[in-house]
Structures are given as C-alpha cells and as structure tokens.
C-alpha cells in the first residue's frame, strides 16, 4: 500500500512507554484490538468458575507473551483492583443467601462471596488481556488502528490531540510549579496554598486556550478545512491472521465450556 513504514518498525527512543519487542507487539494493532475486545466481551458474559479461571490463565499467558515486566504490570492491575475492592468486600453482605459468618448482626452469604469472586476474576482477566494486547501499543499507533477500524474520526482526533499535547501541558505545569518553588512556595493546608494552586490551574487553563487558538491559526495557515487526514495504512500479515484465528478459537472454546457447564 503506502510507502509509509509502520511506526513500530522505526527506532523510537527506548524510554517510550510500552515499547516492546515480544512477538505479540509485532502483530497488527488492529488484530490485537479486536482480539482484546472479543476476549473482554466473552469473559464478561461467562459465569462458571472453570471458564473464568481459564480466562485468567489465558490472560496470564498473554502477559508472558507480551514481555511486559510482570511485577510492574501486576502492580498496575492491583491498582485497578483497589477501585473495586470496596464493592467486593460489601457484596457478600448485601446478597441474600446461605450465611457464612455474621458481623454486628449483618451476615455474609456464600452466594455473595461467589459473585464477588466472579467479578474479581472477570475484571482481572479483562484488564490483564487489555494491558498485554493493547497496552503495549504506542498511543499514536492505537489512534491509527482505531481510525482504520472505522472508529468515528472525532474520537480518534481527540485521542491524537491528547497524545500530542499532554506532554506539552505537563511541561508547562512543571515549569510553573518550578517557578513557584523557586520563590519559596511550599504547599501546606492554608488559604495561601489553595489560592496559589487555583492560580496555577487557572493559568494552565488560560494558556491552553491560547495555545489551542494558535494551533488553530497554524492549521488555517496550512489550508485546514475541518478534515485531518491520517496517512497510516496497515496491512495484515499471515502471522496476524494465524494469531486472530487461534485467538478466536480460544474464545469459542471458552464459550463452549461455559455452555456445557450451564447445561450440567
């Protein structure tokens, strides 16, 4: 197709987040996104413990294949778990059923515990697979892949502009923060701190608006008419097709396992 080589194929600085060399990272980003979405939808619909444990095992296998640093990745997963921790703890107490134990007159049920475990397994399987398949992608590549998967252009551009300018904004924030520090600002719990941080945020907002106007001007200077062309084209290799086929087979196996379990 086009002569534009893939971004992943060129030398990016190695400090780039998620720049991986595992075979999983070599696969077509579109195939990886579709597999991750397929896996997520399947896992969410399954209910039997056997299937869910198998799904977690698959996700762990993907994690190994992606060559993400396991410790860091699992820590990120735990960070996600902390969001649902409260719900998982409360669930046994709120679902009616056969009681396990009673605390202050409120009893926890086996059914609730089972449900909480199911949710934990599902969430972790999905998030692990997502990190292994999609999280290893450069954000820019993700944008291009979503574009070629016909995700609405507005959303893709929003992602692209975010990727492009988040670092610029962060640097602006750091500069302002440093300038405050240089004049002896030390945050504490007082009105002066609140007001100063308010000024900082307000200034960031004003600068961002002004920057966006300058960007708009620069775009107009180059004949912008409301449409941003994205040049990247992907092409599927045999490896991608084999991977997608095998992964689909895996998903179907999960579904069959679930159906057999439900029939019993």
């Amino acid at each position: 197709m086009s002569g534009i080589p893939t971004i992943t194929g060129t030398a990016l600085p190695s400090n780039a987040p998620g720049h991986q060399t595992g075979w999983l990272a070599q696969l077509d980003p579109r195939a990886r996104i579709l597999c991750a979405v397929g896996f997520a939808v399947t896992v969410v619909t399954c209910d039997s413990f056997g299937t869910l444990v198998a799904a977690v095992a698959i996700a762990l296998a993907l994690l190994v294949a992606s060559r993400l640093p396991p410790r860091q990745t699992l820590r990120r997963m735990v960070a996600m778990d902390s969001f649902i921790l409260f719900m998982l703890i409360l669930l046994p107490f709120t679902v009616p059923g056969e009681p396990i134990l009673t605390i202050w007159g409120i009893s926890a049920s086996w059914e609730g515990l089972a449900q909480a475990t199911r949710i934990a397994l599902k969430a972790n399987a999905v998030i692990l697979a997502l990190m292994a398949l999609v999280g290893t992608m450069e954000p820019v590549v993700l944008g291009h892949a979503l574009h070629s998967l016909r995700v609405p252009a507005g959303l893709v551009h929003l992602l692209m502009f975010t990727v492009r300018y988040i670092e610029v904004l962060r640097q602006e924030y750091m500069r302002l923060r440093l300038a405050m520090k240089a004049r002896g600002f030390r945050p504490s719990t007082c009105w002066h701190t609140y007001r100063s941080v308010g000024y900082l945020l307000g200034m960031m907002l004003v600068r961002s608006v002004e920057r966006s106007e300058r960007i708009m001007d620069a775009m107009k200077c180059r004949g912008f008419t409301g449409h941003i062309p994205l040049m990247k084209r992907f092409c599927l290799s045999q490896n991608d097709i084999v991977f997608a086929a095998l992964f689909s087979l895996l998903i179907v196996t999960l579904l069959v396992g679930e159906a057999l379990h439900a029939a019993v």
């Binding site: 086009s2 002569g3 534009i4 971004i7 820019v140 944008g143 291009h144 692209m160 502009f161 990727v163 492009r164 300018y165 610029v168 920057r211 300058r214 960007i215 001007d217 620069a218 775009m219 180059r222 004949g223 912008f224 008419t225 941003i228 062309p229 994205l230 040049m231 990247k232």
Partner: peptide
C-alpha cells in the same frame, strides 16, 4: 514549534498542508 506541529508523526504533519490543497495521498507522500 509546538503550536505548529500537531500531527502524530513528522510525515503526517508535512503532508497535512499538501493534502488540504487537494493533493492525492501518493503525491503528498
């Protein structure tokens, strides 16, 4: 320069102008 370079990659940023002027993909490249 951060005001002017808004496309993800250098090639796309340079192609932005020509594509707006109606160049085809191939000629933009």
């Amino acid at each position: 320069p951060d005001d002017q370079l808004f496309c993800p990659t250098v090639a796309e940023d340079i192609a932005f102008g020509p594509l707006n002027l109606g160049a085809s993909r191939a000629s933009a490249i």
